[in-house]
């Protein structure tokens, strides 16, 4: 058991390092795309460590407690995440719903802390984040329902192995509509344009983050990196057939994340009600159509 827990934290650490590096690389790529040099690939590490070392302000005990809860919740979630088929801290317990709901503890902690700061921008940001969540989660969950119904398991490794056993027939191909929906949902999850309404630096001063600085902000950065790791690797496992070994995982992970980043950089920003309207129009319909096709009619490519 001790070993499993250590593996779990190892995964969390790995996720942090991976995503932070990849984030830096992506900044570079985007920079090149926009005809600039872009920062160094390890710039994000520098940012975080600098923040952690600075003396910050605090708005009361809840402000700090929320940050701890946020980071703790996200680390806990990350420990359940499988990296490859074999690198998984708690085999059988990597239930999909754990990721959806345990991640919410972290989110709640952050939201609470942000609201506790007493800055209305923070509350507005949280409100928008939750609204966005309401928008993308439902179509996404319906697609997941389809997958679970097809594979008969909600274990992430189980789903990944199912795809591998079927001759690498990834759900990306088997459920094309679902894939499109989920990809949009992923963009929403990661808060990428056009769904980055809740951060909107120029509009609401980074929303939830507005009051943070120093170690709190540093911890929230760590939390954010791990969150991205969880969400992207979830996507990799669910739709891209998971990974037999770590190399494939890295490849798929990098591909997905970079793609998301590239797409996000050519878009503007939705208004918050447009986000909701958008997700409840086509993605929801497509998800339901996909589910009906796959579950009731049994037409899976």
């Amino acid at each position: 058991m001790m070993i499993n827990i250590l593996i779990g934290f190892g995964v969390a650490l790995f996720g942090f390092v991976l995503q932070t590096s990849l984030g830096g690389i992506n900044r570079k790529i985007i920079g090149r795309l926009q005809k600039r040099y872009g920062p160094k690939w390890y710039q994000e590490f520098l940012d975080i460590f600098k923040l952690l070392s600075k003396r910050a302000i605090s708005h009361g005990w809840l402000f700090d407690f929320g940050v701890i809860m946020a980071l703790g919740g996200i680390i806990a979630t990350a420990t359940f995440m499988p990296v490859t088929n074999s690198i998984v801290a708690f085999p059988n317990y990597d239930n999909f719903f754990i990721f959806v709901y345990l991640i919410a503890v972290g989110m709640l902690g952050m939201a609470m802390s942000a609201s506790g700061s007493g800055n209305p921008y923070a509350s507005i940001g949280v409100m928008r984040a939750l609204t966005t969540m309401l928008a993308y989660e439902v179509p996404f969950m319906i697609v997941i329902l389809t997958i679970i119904k097809l594979t008969g398991t909600s274990s992430i490794t189980g789903i990944a192995e199912f795809q591998q056993l079927a001759g690498n027939n990834w759900f990306m191909i088997a459920l094309p509509l679902g894939f499109i929906v989920s990809f949009m949902a992923l963009m929403g999850m990661l808060g990428k344009k056009p769904f980055e309404t809740y951060i909107a630096p120029a509009e609401i001063a980074s929303g939830p983050m507005v009051e943070y600085g120093g170690k709190q902000l540093g911890m929230l950065f760590i939390m954010h990196e791990i969150t991205v790791f969880i969400e992207v690797s979830l996507f990799v496992h669910l739709f891209l057939g998971g990974a037999e070994n770590i190399l494939i995982f890295l490849l798929k992970y990098a591909a997905v994340y970079t793609l998301v980043n590239l797409i996000s950089n050519v878009y503007g920003r939705f208004k918050i009600d447009q986000v909701v309207k958008f997700f409840y129009k086509w993605p929801l319909l497509l998800a339901i159509v996909q589910a009906v096709i796959a579950v009731y009619l049994g037409w899976v490519i």
Binding site: I68, L71, G72, I75, L102, M219
Partner: peptide
């Protein structure tokens, strides 16, 4: 979760 919070 408890351990995560502890680490944090």
């Amino acid at each position: 979760f408890a351990l995560g919070v502890f680490i944090a």
